[in-house]
Every structure is written in structure tokens, then in C-alpha cells.
Design a protein around this nucleic acid. Sequence first.
RNA 1: GCCAGAGUAGCUCAGGGGUAGAGCUCUGCUUUCGUAAAGCAGUGGUCACGAGUUCAAAUCUCGUCUCUGGCUCCA
Length: 618
Amino acid sequence: MPASGGCDRPCLGRPDKLRASHDQGSVGRENDMTLPFKPQNGPVSLEALRHSVSHIMADAVLRLFPEGKVAIGPSIEHGFYYDFDLPRALTDEDLPVIEAEMRKVVAEAGDFLMSTMTREEASQRLADSGQKYKVELLADIPEGEEITFYNHGTWADLCEGPHVENAKQIRNDAFKLTSVAGAYWRGDSNNAMLQRIYGTAWFSKKDLRLYMDYLEEIKKRDHRRLGRELDLFSLNPDFGAGLVFWHAKLGHVRRQLEQWWWDLHYADNYWPVYTPHVAGESVFEQSGHLENYADMIWAPMLVDNRPHRVKPMNCPGHVTIFNAKRHSYRDLPVRYAELGTVYRYEPSGTLHGMLRVRGFTQDDAHIFCTPEQLADEIVGVLEMVHTILSTFGYEYTAYLATRPEKYLGTDEIWEHALEALKIAAARKELELEDDPGGGVFYGPKIDFKIKDALGREWQGPTVQVDFNLPDRFDIQYNDSDNNLKRPVMVHRAIFGSMERFVGGLIEHFGAWFPLWLCPTPVAVLPITEEQMPAGAELQQRLTAAGFKSVLTANGPLRKRVRESELEKIPYMAVLGGREVEEGKVNLRIHGVKEQKTMSIDDFIQYLTDKRNSKSLDY
RNA sequence: GCCAGAGUAGCUCAGGGGUAGAGCUCUGCUUUCGUAAAGCAGUGGUCACGAGUUCAAAUCUCGUCUCUGGCUCCA
């Protein structure tokens, strides 16, 4: 087998991704910290094991396709991949064949040995074997750095390691190839499309099984699947790709969230505003959105011979309201909030259920304040972030994104804003991870990443300082010294978008929404028609107390219990002769082992308490 | 947008050049039932859409749309 070359050396792309739809940022993290089980340790690290299995796979693939070319093959969270340039497209049917070949390779491979060679030797060797991608990778290795190869059996790969010591450390029943997909060479869409094979590897068969179970659980909770099964939402190609229909039950969830959201904003002295969904194109020219994000804005429509655009952002609208009158320093801070629906043209291949869509509602707010007020305003936002995230049981991490290479504004103003963000975080004892250069060109920000019940990370709230729009729209206030000054503008969103956030909630809770959000919390189940009147009365009491319920005596109780469970109705109120006689209900509560019997009054009080406390259990 | 795969009843899927099938759902009847599936009958499909090949297309070919897995991208 000819030498082929390197793997992940000049680390290209971002090998820390599990699913693009979830990991929306670029912050890497340690392997397997997020799994619901603790993987067994081995003689080397899991990364080294996986990296080694990727070599084994590359060896196996080239045995099957001798004319194939290899690119990079790093370990990633929970597994590994390797990119290939092959004479034909792979399908899922190829995976078992490659796996079988891998088992042969493992049996023959023996020691993993490192060797060094000069740049010239390496270059010659890679060029001779036609491994053009490896030649490029070699060229990227800085002058003076050692050129290392890792070999097993007849395979040699340009690679800096580390690896297992011997292929015996790879268990043939503890790795699995999971999928094939396209991937651009060097992650650049201008480059050739290669074929990437993903796999997972562990030190024990048991860990592999646990991991496969974990994947199964993720699949079961997929919001698209639950959305269909439970009649929560749909998409309709006739209306357009990436446009979400919120069905009745999810409409209820959203309505509860929005009501709460408004309550929190009123408590913090935000004002509600409403802005138009379309605007003359000049607005987005002035805001700079057209210039910077033209590809993301929906095509123009001519109205009265003038091009209009559907809004991709709410900020210009809020600025317009602010600018509609002259503001005194006494007015500040001004806080505008809007559940603003925006439309952005996302490439077709990126659309994904409710998580990546072309029309969505941001829980947007803009704060106009003086530089001196900035830190206080950010404290208020951080407090609301905490209130909201902790209510759902989300853990979160905050990242301070500092000045990027290309930016607007003076050094002083950046320094001041950064300082304000830091002071605010310190006052809330919020630890800030660094995201150097991660700020937007118009200002620094704090981004939150949240971790769901399955340990997956999601893009969370964001609070951004903006030096750009105030200039572009010439925003002013009249200060105490009677000079017109530029206020600072803060953008912030906590849910982000209702679509993405609620899609995430579906998966986080597995559609078992907490009572305060739950669309149908109670199934009233009279055992026979005889208890129907009592059932109807109970349903009325529940409705009066603000709880929706279903009521049916049709069919055997067992069947109705099953159906209620599948509908994810957390409370089953069973009414038999005994209960009716005593004015009680028998309760089967999701996640609670023993059934409870209590009076109707107690039941309603119980539900009310759970709802008012936004309890996470039933 | 790119690479690959897929699209048959509301859902999950089988079938495959000679005018469509199962289970569940739904409707009706029977059953009156104590905590995860009672019985019988019935409704329901231009086989994604458009062209082409053919005596004949759901089936073969091409194009379009949508979805799936990734990649790139996400103010």
C-alpha cells in the first residue's frame, strides 16, 4: 500500500461539530463531556483511539479503491471521520463492506509506528503515490517543524499523532461507521467536494452500544418527528420551504412563553413596539444590511415602482421610532421590545425543521442609553437571561466576544463597551469565557451557549453593543449640557427566535412540556359512560381554572391510558364508581410511580401550584 | 448553494412496464370496560410535479420541487 498522507495535522475545518443545527457556534470542547454515560478508559486517550481507527478506515477504503485519494481524518467528538476523493459515490450500502475490510486491517495492522523524514523525502513520496491533497497539507507544515508519518502494516500516513501503540488496542466490536456525506476540501465551498465517512469508536462494545442508544434517544426526541406525531407544527412546500406552521398545541406553548416574556419585560420597564414587515429598500441601504448581507435578504418587490424588502432585522424599525422625536437625556434609557417576525434567505440545503428556517420571530429588544448607563443596562439583560434559562433547567456558559480584525468605531468606544460588559458580568458573578475576535464588526457582545437535557449545546441568548446603527441613522439625544450626543445602542435577544427556541424545547423536554406550557395537561378518563357526567363536571372545573383537558369514555381504560401517554398528557384523571361517590379523582401522573387519589379541589390546587411555580416536574 | 440518498393513503412502510397493498389513524356498528392496543365493517391514493421513451409508465429516462445526511453559511 502506498504512502498516503496526513490526517488532521494542519487542523482544517472544525472537527468539533456534532450536528450543524445544534452547534451553531465554533467553540470546541472536550470529548464526551456531554454524554449521559461515562465511557471506559483505555491504554491511550479516546482521541488517539479514534484517530487510529480513522487511519484503519482510510487503509481499508484504499484497499477497496486503490485509485482513491485521501485528505484529512481527525478524531471528533464521539468519533472520527476521513475525507476521500473516490472514483464513485459511496452509499450507505458501502459502509458494512468498509467495516468488514477494516476488521481485516485491524487483524493485520500490528504496531502503530512513528517515523520522521525530510520534507523533500515526504514530498517525493506523497507525490509519487499521487496523494495530491497530502502534498498540499505537507506544504502547510511550517518550516522547521518535524515531518512525521504514522505507519501500521503497509499503511503510512502523514500525521502528527498520537495513536494507539498497537492495533490490538482497537476492538473490532467497538467501532462503527455511521454515515457518508459530502465535504469541501479544506472546508471551502470553492474547492472540490470530497466524500466524508463518519464513524464512532470506543474502548468497549458496551460503550458503543450505549452511544448507539444515545443516538436513538436523540432520534426519538427529534422535534420534526415529535412535531408530526403530536401535531405540533408543519411545513408546507406550497407556502414555501422553511416557513413554519404552528399548530394549535404548539400555538398554546408559544402563547404562554410570549405572555411570560411580556410580563418580564414590563417588569423591567421595556415598552412594546410594533414595526412594519416590509420597508423601502433605502432603509436597508442606510442600515448597511443590504451592503453586508445582501445574500440573506429576500428579493425585492416593486410597490409603486419602488423596490421594497421584507425585513431581515427589526433594528431599523426601532431606530425609526426612536428618531421620531427629539430625546432628552432624561428619557434615557429607552427600551423597546418586539416579538418581531423577520425573513432571511437561508440556502435551501441548510433548512432544518424549526431550527433553521426562512421566516422566524425574534424576541428582540433594543436599548438606547448613555455610555454611563451601559453597564447597568447589561446587568438587567443578564438578569433576565438567567431568569429565563434557569426556568427551563438549561445550564449555560457565557462568552465574551471581543474586537474582530475588521471593525467600526474608535478604540476608546470599544474599550468602554468591553469594560461595561465585563463590569456587568462581574456584578452578576457571571464567568465569561473568551471568544477573542468573535465580536461583530459593529461592537462587542456576550453570547450564551445553553446545554440541553441530552448534553447538546445550542446557540443561546446574545447581548450586543452596536456602534454602527447609531451613526448610520444619526441617533441623538440632547444632554444636560444642551449638546446633541450619540446614545449607545444595545441589541439583545434571549429566546433568539421563537422557532428555534421552541424547537429546542421540544427536544429538551422530549415534548413533555412543563405544566405551565403543556397544551393538554389532563386526560379525564371516566371508566364507563356512567361516570361521564362527573367527567364533564371535572373538565369544566379544569377549564375554569385555566387547564385544557380531553374527556373520553370511549373504549377500554387501558387503551385510553395508552393513548394519553402517547399524546404526552402528563395527568390522567381516572373516574370510577368509587371516585365519583367520594368526590375524588384517581391520578396517574407521568414520571410518578404510585397513583394518587385526591379530591377535585386538591387536584386543582395541586395543578395551580405546579403551574404558578413553573415546576419542571409534574 | 454543493455532494449523495429519498418522495406510494393523514402516519409507518411493502410492491414494481399491463390501470394500486398492509398496519395504524379516521368514520360507523357491536363492546361498558379499573391504569400502555376489544371485535367487525367502511372511508381514504393523478404512486411529489412536468416532459420523454413505450401499444401500455407508479415502475425506465431527463428536468423541477420538497425532504433526509453532511459540507459551506447563519447579522
